[in-house]
Lab assay of single mutants.
Amino acid sequence: AVSDRLIGRKGVVMEAISPQNSGLVKVDGETWRATSGTVLDVGEEVSVKAIEGVKLVVEKLE
Rank of each mutant, 00 (worst) to 15 (best):
V39I: 09
V57M: 07
V12K: 07
G37P: 13
A50D: 07
A50M: 07
V58D: 00
V42K: 08
V46R: 00
K60S: 07
K26T: 11
E30P: 03
T38K: 10
L6F: 08
K26N: 12
V13F: 00
K55W: 10
G29V: 06
R5P: 10
G29C: 08
D4N: 11
V39M: 14
K60I: 05
V46T: 02
I7H: 03
V13N: 00
L61I: 10
K60R: 13
V57N: 04
W32Y: 10
G8F: 03
L24D: 03
S47I: 14
K49W: 11
G53R: 04
W32G: 01
R5Q: 13
E15Y: 15
G11L: 01
S36A: 09
V39Q: 12
V25Q: 01
S18H: 11
G8Y: 03
G11E: 00
L61T: 11
T31N: 07
V58F: 01
K10G: 06
V25C: 05
I17R: 01
S47M: 13
V46P: 01
G29H: 13
L24R: 08
E15S: 13
L24V: 10
V12Y: 15
V46I: 14
P19H: 05
V25D: 00
A1M: 10
S22D: 13
W32P: 00
V39K: 15
G8P: 02
M14W: 15
S3D: 14
S47P: 01
D4S: 11
V58S: 01
D28M: 09
V54H: 08
E30R: 06
R5C: 09
T38W: 15
E15V: 11
V27R: 01
E30M: 09
V25F: 02
V42C: 05
V58T: 02
G37T: 11
A34Y: 03
E59W: 14
W32S: 02
E44K: 05
T38R: 11
P19F: 11
A16L: 09
D41W: 14
L24I: 13
W32A: 02
V57L: 09
G11A: 08
V39C: 06
E45V: 10
P19D: 06
K49T: 11
S3F: 06
A34M: 01
V57D: 03
D28H: 07
V27E: 00
K49C: 07
L40W: 04
E52K: 07
I51Y: 09
R33G: 05
I17K: 01
G43W: 08
V46F: 03
L61M: 10
A50K: 09
S18Y: 10
V48T: 02
L24Q: 08
V42T: 06
W32H: 06
L6I: 06
E62D: 12
G37Q: 13
S3H: 10
K55R: 10
G11I: 01
I51G: 03
S47H: 13
G23S: 01
V27P: 00
M14E: 08
L56M: 06
V54W: 15
G53V: 04
R9P: 02
G8S: 04
R5V: 14
S22R: 04
S3V: 11
S3G: 10
P19E: 06
S18Q: 08
E62N: 15
E44M: 10
D41E: 12
R9W: 15
M14V: 11
W32L: 04
S36I: 01
D41T: 14
M14F: 12
T38M: 14
R33D: 05
L24M: 11
V42E: 06
M14I: 10
N21W: 13
T31A: 08
K55C: 08
V39Y: 14
S18I: 12
K10A: 07
V12E: 05
E45H: 14
S3C: 06
T38V: 11
A50R: 09
S3Q: 11
G29R: 06
V57Y: 13
E44W: 12
V12L: 13
E15L: 15
I17L: 05
E45W: 14
L40V: 08
V13M: 03
G23D: 00
A34F: 03
V25T: 03
I51S: 04
E15N: 09
K10M: 13
E44H: 08
V54A: 14
G11S: 02
V39R: 11
I51V: 09
R5A: 15
I17W: 02
G37L: 15
Q20G: 14
E30A: 07
V48A: 02
R5K: 12
A16R: 15
S18F: 11
V27I: 10
V27D: 00
S47F: 12
S22Q: 08
S22N: 12
A1Y: 05
A1R: 03
E62M: 11
V2K: 04
L40M: 07
G53F: 04
E59D: 11
D4L: 09
T35W: 15
K10D: 06
E59L: 12
E45F: 14
T35P: 01
V54G: 12
R9Q: 11
N21C: 15
E62V: 13
K10C: 06
D28G: 06
E44S: 13
V39P: 08
E30T: 05
K10P: 10
I7S: 03
V58Q: 00
G8W: 03
E59F: 15
A50P: 01
D4Q: 11
A34I: 01
E59S: 12
K49P: 01
D28T: 06
S47D: 04
L61S: 08
E30Q: 08
S22A: 12
A16H: 13
S3R: 05
V27F: 03
E15M: 15
A1I: 11
A16Q: 14
G53M: 04
K55F: 15
G53Y: 04
G43S: 07
E62Y: 15
E45Y: 14
S47R: 14
E45S: 11
W32N: 02
I17N: 02
V46N: 00
R5H: 08
A50G: 13
P19Y: 13
T31F: 13
V13G: 00
N21G: 12
N21M: 11
A16K: 15
A50C: 06
A1L: 11
L6Y: 07
R9I: 04
L56W: 02
V54F: 14
L40A: 04
E52N: 09
A34W: 01
G53S: 05
L56I: 07
S22L: 14
E59G: 08
M14C: 05
Q20W: 15
T35Y: 12
A1F: 05
E52V: 14
L40T: 03
I7Y: 04
V42G: 04
S47Y: 14
V27M: 04
V39G: 07
E52D: 15
A34D: 00
L61Y: 13
L40F: 10
K49H: 08
G53K: 04
I17V: 08
L56E: 01
G53H: 05
N21A: 13
P19M: 07
K60A: 06
I7T: 04
T31L: 14
V2G: 08
V12N: 06
S3P: 08
V54C: 07
L24F: 11
I51A: 05
M14P: 00
E44F: 09
K55I: 14
K49E: 05
K10F: 10
D41I: 11
I7W: 03
E45P: 10
E30N: 06
L6S: 02
G43I: 02
W32K: 02
S3I: 11
W32I: 03
P19S: 09
G43P: 04
S3A: 11
N21K: 11
V12R: 12
K49N: 05
V54Q: 10
L40E: 02
G11N: 01
V13W: 01
S36D: 01
T31G: 04
E59V: 14
G8C: 04
V57H: 08
V25M: 02
N21E: 10
G43Q: 06
G29L: 08
M14S: 07
V48G: 01
K49S: 10
K60Y: 04
E52M: 09
I7L: 13
G37Y: 15
N21Y: 12
G43R: 11
M14Q: 11
K55V: 15
T35M: 13
V13K: 00
D4W: 03
V48K: 00
E45T: 14
V58G: 01
I17C: 05
K10Q: 09
K60P: 07
P19G: 07
G11K: 00
E52G: 04
V27C: 04
I51L: 09
L6N: 03
L56V: 07
E30F: 10
G53A: 05
V12I: 10
R5M: 12
K55P: 02
S18V: 10
E44T: 15
K49D: 03
K55G: 12
G23N: 01
I51P: 01
G8I: 02
V25R: 00
A16N: 12
S36L: 01
V2R: 03
T35H: 06
D28Y: 07
V54S: 12
L24H: 08
G23R: 01
S36H: 02
E52I: 11
